[in-house]
Simulated assay, not measured.
Amino acid sequence: MRLLLLEDDLDYRQSIKEYLESLNYNIDDFEDGEEALSAIHENKYHLLILDIRVPSLSGYELVKTIRENGDNTPVIYITSLTDINNLSLGYELGCNDYIKKPFSPKELKYRIEQLIKLFYTNETTKQIKLKPDFTYDILKKELKKDDEIINLTKKQSDVVFCLVSNKNQYISIETLRSEVWDDKYICEADIRVCIKKIRDKTSKEFIINQRGIGYKIDREE
């Protein structure tokens, strides 16, 4: 899962980033609001963690801009501005949650998990049913068949998460490179090898590919 972190305090930003990376999140971090906005336009993020008072473009202005452009990515504000006027403005502009500084890392962890559950899981079931005959826990990133966990490497797990999150849609090689490998250079052949190894652990029908378009994992209706 790929998250964006906007925080102008270097030490604070680094400590948050290291903690979230220890939880296996992929983090792109920024100290400048304009740079963060450019990254949001160029990449797909599952959640945005934003300070409000940052250089160039405030957290308020950033959220206002992306909401006006139809981007509904969930947003958590991390800020010391927690009087009723600031809270009201943040929610009116489209944020989903607030955390008051200073905060416990575990509090941030739980807030993130709740938003992921709200935005990326089927509220009527605890697990997502996938074809053919697999189940997937999107919070734990656990893939099972017949109640037995299928052991995946971190990159294999990230590929499955990316495909499941995009609900029956084909995902291109370039998108996989961006979301799973953070745009680091990796050749297309290596990505195909990763997908083949996932199929070896599941089934040939688990990941579907369309030549020239990409890959997908189908959910059960």
Rank of each mutant, 00 (worst) to 15 (best):
R111D: 06
S15C: 04
E68T: 13
K155Q: 10
D218V: 02
E18T: 10
E221F: 04
Y19C: 07
D51A: 14
Y12P: 00
D146K: 15
D97R: 15
Q127D: 02
I66R: 00
G214V: 10
I78L: 14
L93I: 14
E107R: 07
I207W: 10
D183M: 08
K204F: 03
N86D: 15
L89F: 06
L130E: 05
L47F: 08
V75P: 03
L47P: 03
Q127E: 12
D200S: 11
D133T: 09
I198H: 13
Y98L: 10
E34H: 07
I52D: 01
Q127I: 10
K155A: 07
T124Y: 14
Q210G: 00
K101I: 07
S58N: 10
L81W: 02
I112G: 00
L152I: 04
L89N: 11
K17R: 15
K140T: 05
N96Q: 14
T153P: 01
K117F: 00
E188F: 09
K155D: 12
G212Q: 13
L118V: 11
V193D: 11
S165R: 11
K100V: 07
I116P: 01
E68G: 07
V75I: 14
S56E: 08
I76P: 08
E42M: 12
V193W: 04
C187R: 15
S165C: 02
V160W: 09
R219H: 13
I49R: 03
P132I: 14
K145L: 02
I76A: 06
T135Y: 03
E92N: 15
V159G: 07
V160I: 14
N43A: 02
K129Y: 04
C162T: 15
R53Q: 12
L89S: 04
Q169Y: 01
K140G: 05
S80Y: 06
I40N: 05
G214H: 01
E34C: 05
I195E: 00
L10H: 13
E123A: 07
I173A: 10
D146A: 11
G94M: 04
I112S: 01
G90P: 09
I186F: 09
N166S: 06
L6C: 02
Q210M: 07
T202W: 09
C194N: 12
R199T: 07
L130P: 06
E18F: 10
F206S: 01
G90M: 14
K154R: 05
E34A: 11
G90L: 13
F119P: 01
K117W: 03
I213Y: 01
D29L: 03
K216H: 06
E92V: 00
T82S: 11
Q156Y: 00
L10N: 09
P105W: 09
R192Y: 08
V159R: 08
N43Y: 05
D32Q: 10
E31Y: 03
V193Q: 11
G90Y: 10
E42G: 00
I138H: 05
Y98A: 05
Y91H: 10
D218G: 00
V159P: 02
F161I: 01
K145M: 05
S88V: 07
N85M: 08
Q14W: 02
N69I: 00
M1W: 03
S104E: 12
D218C: 04
I208G: 02
A189C: 03
E123F: 05
T125V: 03
I186N: 08
K117Q: 12
E61C: 02
Q114A: 14
E31Q: 09
F103W: 08
K44N: 08
Y12E: 09
